[in-house]
Write a protein that binds this DNA or RNA. Structure first.
Lengths: 335, 335
DNA sequence: CTGTTAGCGCGTTCAC
DNA sequence: GTGAACGCGCTAACAG
């Protein structure tokens, strides 16, 4: 029962017309006898004809699909970025094909090669954390396939890039705490090997400096494993003689762990200690008090990156743009 | 600079061979002079030749891509299912193309038509919550395109389906509470119009019945808007003369809201009141005490559905299977 | 307005 | 072992 797919030829035969006439009628291009056009449309409808994109692609060398490569799809950050991509792609008539690199360079390379085989019109990529070598990306560009980096980019390749300013987000969070009157602000930092963590740390430091608040090294603790060792780090912080009156955490999970720990000690949030997180995870509205946090423009990243990619696909010679998007402070009850 | 893509013809010309010879050499099929084969492979490597899937698809009428239609991609449940799909598809040489219906039947129909145009080899779908009409799906099947439903299926169309047993999960949760010695078990139910909510409610009821625990209607409250009105419902529950000693919540968010409310009242979890959630959201390990919950096999759903679809694609005549997967109880500290 | 021809990149005969 | 010819479904160029 396979292959019941109706083709132009089928329509042409039944209508005793030539294939090209049918094709023209369906696409209403050039002059066509309104009468025959009507017939064609009617039969197409009746037989449930759907144009074969594959054949079309082969002819005009455009597949109208863009390939996306990202580390993992099951993360609230990427899932949201994907939403943005879909929105733009959809509205411009493009399809999206996803592939996961699982953070390994081997899979990343395999993904890209497959996308090339599919002849995607362009590629959107957030590189794996180990990716350093630019060769593959250069080859892609040489083949005339536009590529734009989102979220994580590679310095060594010149291309359009859309990223998020981590420094600014952290700065915003700390500045907010300062404005609220907190002065002894601690930072639950992320793993020191990760650039997003150090950028956020720098944002924290600069916000303090710019407001003439002395930096207390004891107030900076690194959670080398994110939320998994956050609890002991908070305990460290509140074991200090001179305890902090606010915490800026590298992510929402760590912030929430802090809140719960402090509450169990009898502290009141935000009166005794204020807490600000990062990410605006769904959790942040659920906890009590609801968490003040930084919302990264992940949806926007997806949208912008896709828009820029399609621009490049359709207007051959476009200079590379490098956009750095800012995050937003979401003030809730924890600060 | 476009269209730098190398083709068989390019290789053939440079090697002064015919296209078919080159093709054969690359696919190492039939007898080929090992010498010419070596040359071909060398040049292909040098020129970075990548076979054109589009052209291949047109010839053998198989695209090796499967289309997925789901309500929203940015949900931890679907994101996880997608992971399962990717794993299976990847290992079997298939690509996946996603599209979102945004829970509307119009977009759902548009998605399916586009997938048909792309000539996907098969379709995986979780229908929008308003979908009732089976016509479109029947048409897809008539075209010879296998379709399998996952998570949410349509009774009116006979096809392979992979779903999750909600009754069993709820039963597991309540049974666990009973075994722990709790007897006054309340249920924060979901919106009564949703089938998953009523199935879970029935699981709750049956678990009580099977254990000879009388059902107290006051202990069943419906959160018509999930977590958004969970707080007031819990307050209702604990405003009762005869207060519950355990809560089974329809999802993790509601469970966490309950925990925090009870803690603020001075209750100790789980000594005074036990709480069990549903979904095994990332939050559930973060909160204190960590939440006992039900883990739905979403990853498994994705895997199984994809596997069954590919089976159908490759073995024409396969009877439809209907798989109902069971959930798992994750025991943590809240019970 | 419509039909004919050619070709997109590749696989599959069928000859040589 | 290799080449020529044909077709997949469709669009584009040129006739008529």
């Amino acid at each position: 029962m396979l292959n019941k797919q109706v083709t132009l030829k089928d329509l042409a035969r039944k209508l005793r017309l030539s294939v090209s006439t049918v094709s023209r009628a369906l696409r209403n291009v050039q002059d066509i006898n309104p009468e025959t056009k009507k017939q064609v449309l009617a039969l197409a409808e009746e037989l449930n004809y759907e144009p074969n994109f594959i054949a079309k692609s082969l002819v005009n060398k455009k597949t109208k699909v863009i390939g996306v490569v990202l580390p993992v799809i099951a993360s609230s950050y990427f899932a949201s970025a994907i939403g943005g991509m879909m929105e733009v792609a959809d509205s411009l008539g493009y399809h999206i094909m996803f592939s996961q690199s699982d953070e390994t360079i081997e899979k990343e390379e395999a993904c890209i090669k497959r996308l090339i085989s599919i002849r995607v019109d362009g590629i959107l990529i957030s590189v794996s954390k180990d990716t350093i070598n630019p060769d593959l990306f250069l080859k892609v560009q040489q083949k005339g396939i536009p590529i734009v980096f989102f979220d994580r980019a590679l310095d060594s390749v010149s291309a359009t890039k859309v990223t998020v300013n981590q420094h600014q987000g952290a700065y915003l969070a700390v500045e907010h705490l300062i404005k609220k009157g907190y002065k002894k602000i601690a930072h639950l930092a992320g793993p020191s090997r990760l650039s997003i963590a150090t950028e956020r740390l720098n944002g924290y430091l600069d916000a303090l400096k710019d407001n003439n608040i002395p930096i207390n090294p004891h107030y900076i603790v690194h959670c080398e494993d994110f939320e998994h060792d956050a609890l002991e780090k908070v305990q460290l912080l509140f074991g200090l003689e001179n305890k902090p009156d606010a915490i800026f955490a590298v992510n929402d999970s760590s912030a929430i762990i802090s809140i719960q720990y402090l509450q169990s000690l009898g502290y009141h949030i935000p009166d005794d200690v204020a807490v600000v997180g990062y990410n605006n995870d769904p959790i942040s509205t659920i906890v009590n008090p609801a968490l003040t946090t930084i919302m990264q423009p992940s949806y926007e990243v997806g949208k912008v990156a896709t828009q820029l990619l399609i621009d490049e696909i359709e207007n051959e010679e476009k200079p590379f743009a490098e956009q750095v998007l800012n995050s937003e402070l979401i003030i809730r009850m924890s600060s």
